[in-house]
Design a binder for these strands. Structure first.
Lengths: 128, 128
DNA sequence: TAGTTGTATTATATAACTTAATACAACTAA
DNA sequence: TTAGTTGTATTAAGTTATATAATACAACTA
């Protein structure tokens, strides 16, 4: 799977999920991981579209969803920027982690396993 | 969300995911949870379709995927049955649990968190 | 033999996603 | 002021996955 680097961001697109979803996820996780500085300017809609060889509308859709979450700020005529609000970034990171945990626990319960078993699974697994 | 009961199985369908996927998942988890006895006869393709108010082809697709996993056995002219092989059921249950754990750990790592943090999240969360 | 099973095929419909082309509004820099 | 870059909106078209419908056949049971 090809990796495209552009600025502080890197992207890997495939056909298993909607493109706009992959783009927004990879930006979201880059920021949550702390790989890009707050206030960083994102590539323009057209530039990113060209680099990823996808349609500008698809990039727009990703940017707009991130904007709704206040993870990025779009300024008409200027560009799109990562929020400078650390609180927001931290909260989104916590939420993503919590949601991942919650869906894991839900799956375990659907298999008739309890939280203790879930914990053991995490402890005993080889997650290299 | 309406629950439809039929034999030892119960179904809840919505529009968030493909119908055939929901049907196969709910059968898979029912069996993995041990709610249905090994060798149990499933509703016929047409019967289940009628009860769920969906197309027989959609039920077929669910059954065929479960058949490929050997979780069920289809016998032309007789019907469809849960496997009588306990080993298979146990292995599928373990696999589902493992996959859930793996995808949780993957998400955590994508957020720059380690396995220890993952474990703490599980421990400290209120999963009622 | 009649009725039930799983199975296959062909056609149609629909919704989500993606692309394309175009236009406009807001801002920056020359 | 002007040219070029931004985000944004709109309309149309194409693709794909999913689901339905109708029909037929093969394998089995009673």
């Amino acid at each position: 799977m090809e990796t495209i680097r552009i600025g502080d961001f890197s992207f890997q697109l495939d056909l298993t999920k909607p493109l706009y979803e992959q783009v927004l996820q990879q930006i979201r996780y880059s920021v949550a991981r702390g790989e890009v500085a707050l206030g960083t300017k994102l590539p323009s809609v057209r530039e990113l579209a060209q680099n990823l060889k996808i349609n500008p509308n698809t990039v727009m859709r990703a940017y707009q969803e991130l904007d709704r979450d206040h993870l990025i700020e779009t300024r008409r005529g200027q560009g799109t920027f990562i929020t400078d609000n650390l609180k927001i970034v931290e909260q989104i990171r916590q939420n993503l982690a919590y949601e991942a945990a919650r869906s894991f626990i839900t799956a375990m319960k659907e298999l008739g396993m309890d939280v203790h078993t879930a914990k053991s699974l995490i402890e005993e697994g080889d997650w290299t």
